[in-house]
Design a protein around this nucleic acid. Structure first.
Length: 564
RNA sequence: UGGGGCGUCGUCAAGUGGUAAGACACAGGAUUUUGGUUCCUGCAUUCGGAGGUUCGAGUCCUCCCGCCCCAGCCA
């Protein structure tokens, strides 16, 4: 990847980093980390964090670790760690040998907890979860000390060892930091450090039955790894006080700086893990990699490229204010990337048969077509033309309105790279009145698409020779929600009520150019005038391709129609 | 109404006391064998509001308003 693709623009975090580097705060060292919990699939919001963390490491000659924050065995699974690694790699980032797991630090973390107990700064509490909540107080009232808050160091030590040894049941006791039950920041009212969970962990198995909490684990993991700047999202701002407290009250040598930034919100989509899970589990989509999903694997299957996603992340900026980025920007970045790279091909999605009456039966012509007008190196190809072809149903109107430039009775248009044709007759279904076929004549002197007499035509249509067409299924994808902010409160409605029924339309008798017969997974192209498409990685079979629409082309005509 | 944050164009976002970048979106126009691409043009006399300091304020001060986060043995 090129330098500027991974170089986020200047923002408040790069400003801090540059200042720190200049001041030699960490001996000129920069170390970041991307710390996902392996309890779900990565989505475009994670991509923002990945691009930030790996991006600044690249820019400032630092390092970025991949660390799994796997401290809650009830929610986590190796399925997710594998998927996360695949997605980070696919996005174009490399952690070299710096792959870590918080669970690797369980023994060290336990020792740090013992330090806290020995210093009288942590205690074993026998209160139930309910009682702890009741003792916590409220936003405006101070909490109350637990009756177990003043146990001796010896008793705490022995109890904590007992917790580790499995002597107590889940939920019967926790280890708590001994801070201040009247602290104005609720996070600091004797936060839980360890809980008992007799659950098998996907990496440590049954070695442990007590597991450290996020607030205790994260800062120490950062410290152990020598992280210099610990970048996280805004909802952890309150936790920073505890992050610093733990590091200040234990003999940690490295004290990273936690900096919070606003998480990504995208219009017309939801990004909360809880909602994404619901969409999958309740069958609103076909899985985590459903091309309608904002997950990395969904976007990948949809045809988004790593380059486009990185470009998007660079363009959205970074700040501390809550914001909603317009999904149009994401669509812009994929078009921008594919425009330069996608080969052009003709594909008729909703076919309408056209017979060229003055073109000899049984004859065939091979026309030369440019593979990509944006890329001379892409070369040319031959496209077969014959008496019977298909054009797009939307490219013909029996009673064309004012600004409709395409085909109509008696009108002449250009078939791309082929000939000028004029519509001479419209054939309809006797009973339904539906247009089922068009009769045209062609001008043989316009071969290639230019008229020797210099006459012009208002439209150029894509087409496919009927005899040579490849039949294919094409899936038209669109935005998952029809409402810009699906989370906005509206009388007894939830985001699920705003799912866009047109987010998926399956077309089964599409006619594609013959060169697409062997297109396999990984192939992407532009169907001229229609949009960018890619071969579906799951449902496509050799010889029977399935294409996914990644994004439409910008469409001035559609915009005009919408207006009227 | 405890504490922590945040308010600059429709949407993101620069700006760090010297006279409001850029991008997307939108609207015009030009070129075009994709109503695509590309190229031009327009798009905040004003920075949540009101006062104040200053020769000068989006930037500093005061007060007010609005939004977000925190009462998991989740992360």
């Amino acid at each position: 990847m090129t330098e500027n693709e991974t170089t986020p623009g200047s923002n408040f975090i790069t400003t801090i980093i540059e200042t720190d580097l200049k001041a030699n705060i960490h001996n000129g060292r920069l170390a970041t980390r991307f710390p996902p919990e392996p309890n779900g699939y990565l989505h475009i919001g994670h991509a923002k964090s990945i691009c930030l963390n790996f991006g600044v490491a690249n820019t400032y000659n630092g390092t970025c670790n991949l660390r799994f924050d796997d401290t809650n065995p009830t929610k986590e699974d190796v399925e997710y760690v594998d998927a996360i690694m695949e997605d980070v790699r696919w996005l174009g980032f490399d952690w070299d040998d710096r792959l870590y797991y918080a669970s690797d630090y369980f023994e060290q973390l336990f020792a740090y907890a013992v330090q806290l107990i020995q210093a009288g700064k942590a205690y074993v509490d026998d209160l139930s979860a309910d009682e702890i909540r009741q003792h916590r107080g409220t936003l405006t009232e101070p909490g109350m000390d637990s009756p177990w808050r003043n146990r001796s160091v010896e008793e705490n030590l022995s109890l904590f060892q007992g917790m580790r040894a499995g002597d107590f049941e889940d939920g019967s006791r926790v280890l708590r930091a001994r801070i201040d039950m009247a602290h104005p920041n609720l996070i600091m009212r004797d936060p839980t450090l360890y809980r008992i969970r007799k659950t098998r962990h996907h990496r440590t198995g049954d070695t442990w039955c007590i597991y450290p909490m996020y607030d205790f684990t994260h800062c120490l993991s950062d410290s152990i790894e020598g992280i210099t700047h610990s970048l996280c999202t805004l909802e952890f701002e309150n936790n920073r006080t505890l992050y610093d407290w733990v590091l200040d009250n234990v003999d940690a040598t490295c004290h990273p700086q936690q900096i919070e930034f606003a998480r990504l919100n995208l219009s017309y989509t939801v990004l909360s893990k809880r909602k994404l899970i619901q969409l999958v589990e309740e069958g609103f989509v076909d899985g985590w990699d459903d091309p309608r999903m904002p997950t990395i694997c969904g976007l990948r299957r949809r045809g988004y490229t790593p380059e486009a996603i990185r470009s998007f992340c660079d363009r959205i900026g970074l700040a501390k204010r809550d914001s909603v980025v317009d999904v149009a920007l994401l669509e812009y970045t994929i078009r921008e990337d594919l425009n330069k790279r996608a080969p052009r091909v003709m594909g008729v999605l909703r076919p309408l048969k056209v017979v060229i009456e003055n073109y000899p039966e049984g004859q065939m012509d091979e026309l030369e077509a440019v593979n990509n007008p944006e890329d001379p190196n892409a070369g040319v190809r031959k496209v077969p033309f014959s008496r019977e072809i298909y054009i797009e149903r939307d490219d013909f109107m029996e009673n064309p309105p004012k600004k409709f430039y395409r085909l109509g009775p008696g009108r002449e248009v250009r078939l791309r790279y082929a000939f000028f044709v004029t519509c001479t007759d419209v054939i309809k279904d006797q009973t339904t009145g539906e247009v089922i076929e068009l009769r045209c004549t062609y001008d043989p002197t316009t071969r290639g698409g230019d008229a020797p007499d210099g006459r012009k035509v208002k439209a150029t249509l894509h087409w496919v020779s009927a005899a040579h067409a490849v039949d294919a299924e094409v899936r038209l994808y669109d935005r998952l929600f029809s409402k810009a902010n699906p989370d906005e409160k509206e009388a007894d409605k939830t985001y699920k009520d705003f799912l866009n029924p047109e987010a998926l339309e399956v077309l089964r008798d599409c006619k594609l150019e013959p060169c697409l017969a062997d297109a396999g997974p990984g192939y992407f192209c532009q169907f001229e005038r229609m949009g960018y498409f890619c071969v579906d990685t799951k449902d496509s079979q050799p010889g029977v391709p399935v294409f996914n629409r990644t994004v439409t082309l910008r469409d001035a005509w559609a915009k005009l129609q919408k207006k009227s």
